[in-house]
Design a protein around this nucleic acid. Structure first.
Length: 430
RNA sequence: UCCGGAGUAGCUCAGUGGUAGAGCGAGUGGCUGUUAACCACCAGGUCGGGAGUUCAAAUCUCUCCUCCGGAGCCA
């Protein structure tokens, strides 16, 4: 089957082809009119005159509306006057379906109105660019792990127990008992690492936090690799290679889209290994030197992260956090019992945390002690503790928030445009 | 949950006590190279809901609702 798509226009210059799409814009004159045809891969200006097109096709100018679906047959040629550089001289137009008055006009709209019409807004050039870049990022993620012999181990979305505090989980009814929507697949990922060595899980995760910021969604996608016999340094090595690869793939395949978004690509070209690595304690010193009233033991806020990351032109990895502000499963620093072998990666330009990870606690006694400190019991984590009972092993992993990465790479102000249908505290529809 | 901002035509907004406005979009007509095309004409309103002050409220007061931005929490 031979198909023609606008993004490949260069390949069929001079040929008579049929393009299938929607009327992105129509500009009419008396004896000539211009149809901007959108087919999902690009936009082609089609010129319709009464000389080259048949009478019925030409007369469509008085009938066609924005976003009407239409087939256009004509000859494609290079044309500098046309946006995109190519143009179709139309011979024949076939209206597939006339569109009602399109809600999204060519002038400005407010964000809430556009989000109410998200199902239509996705047709716009800007949204197309963002979602295509998202696609490339996700493909890069899968390719990266595939090339390094990781096995995909899918983890459950319905989960019995909270990993990090029930308050932030969505509860649902599961045949008479309570179940929670996953906010991480990590504990299951550790079981996977013991079974397959190097694994990753990749799926939607859910947070019921009532966060109202430009960095939060209630439903977002997270990829979580978990590696047997990896310590914290190996974990950081992998994380920086991973992020570098993702950025490189977007630069290689999505230049036009980055241009549509007016992204400063020099900022992305700077993303090369090695990334700076600083300890939490060094991070505290940076804050204090910048006049922040910050004491060892506190967690970094959004503004603190921005100050730290702005010291560097590439992502910075902050490691060895105070144990008290991190999760129970993180391994104690053998050299300092107050610290855990955690790592956060902060994106440049103030985009904040894109990765959180750690080396995991492999000493069952220390793990049980931490579980009890959190007010839980051994029984609550019985299968998880089995991973330490039956051949405990050093292992590490991290989670990367896909939408945060899309926000950063695209240079967006808000995370809500990075997923086709965002879920936020105030948005469940469409 | 806390702090700040906003809600007026289909959309984006102006209008700070005295007859509700503009641009865009829709509609009608014109135009053979348009680039968010342009020009002319034209229709379109329970000023978020409720209560109050006043001769008079989009405008002042109270209250509720919704949304936006920020904080906290996090990817």
């Amino acid at each position: 089957m031979k198909e023609y798509f606008i993004q490949n226009a260069k390949a069929f210059v001079g040929e008579t082809v049929t393009l299938k799409g929607w009327a992105y814009n129509v500009r009419k004159s008396g004896k000539i009119w211009f149809l901007l045809l959108r087919d999902g891969t690009g936009i082609m200006q089609c010129v319709v005159t009464s000389f080259d097109a048949d009478e019925a096709s030409f007369a469509l100018k008085d009938e066609i509306t924005l976003e009407s679906s239409v087939l256009v047959t004509g000859v494609v040629k290079a044309e500098p006057r046309s946006p995109g550089g190519y143009e179709m001289l139309a011979h024949k137009l076939e209206l597939v379906a006339i569109a009602e008055e399109y809600p999204i006009s060519k002038k400005d709209h407010g964000i809430d109105y556009l989000m109410d019409n998200r199902h239509l807004w996705l047709r716009s050039k800007r949204q197309n660019a963002i979602i295509r870049i998202r696609h490339t990022i996700i493909k890069a993620i899968r390719d990266f792990f595939d090339a390094r012999d990781f096995t995909l181990v899918d983890t459950p979305i319905f989960q019995k127990a909270a990993t990090e505090g029930v308050a932030t989980l969505f509860a649902t009814e599961y045949f008479g008992e309570k179940a929670y929507l996953a906010q991480t697949g990590q504990l299951y990922g550790e079981a996977g690492a013991a079974a397959f060595g190097k694994i990753y899980c990749f799926g939607p995760t859910f947070r019921a936090e009532k966060s109202k910021t430009r960095r939060h969604l209630t439903e977002f996608w997270m990829v979580e690799p978990e590696m047997a016999f990896y310590d914290l340094d190996m974990n950081m090595d992998l994380a920086e290679e991973f992020v570098t690869y993702i950025v490189a793939q977007v630069l290689e395949h999505r230049r036009p889209e980055l241009e549509t978004l007016e992204r400063d690509t020099s900022k992305l070209e700077a993303i090369q290994v090695p990334f700076p690595r600083i300890s939490y304690t060094e991070g505290v010193k940076i804050l204090q030197k910048n006049g922040v009233d910050f004491k060892w033991g506190d967690d970094f806020g959004g503004g603190d992260e921005t100050i730290i990351s702005s010291q560097f032109d590439r992502p910075v990895m902050v490691h060895r956090y105070p144990a008290a502000i991190k999760a129970f499963y993180m391994k104690r620093d053998p050299e300092n019992d107050k610290q855990v072998m955690a790592l956060d990666m902060l994106a440049p330009e103030g985009y904040g945390e894109i990765i959180g990870g750690s080396q995991r606690e492999d000493d069952i006694e220390k793990l049980i002690s931490r579980i009890k400190d959190d007010g839980a019991t051994e029984e609550d984590y019985s299968w998880y503790l089995d991973l330490r009972r039956y051949g405990s092993f050093p292992h590490s992993g991290f989670g990367l928030g896909v939408e945060r990465v899309v926000t950063w790479i695209c240079g967006l102000k808000h995370i809500r445009e990075t997923i086709p249908f965002p879920r936020t505290i105030s948005r469940l529809n469409p």
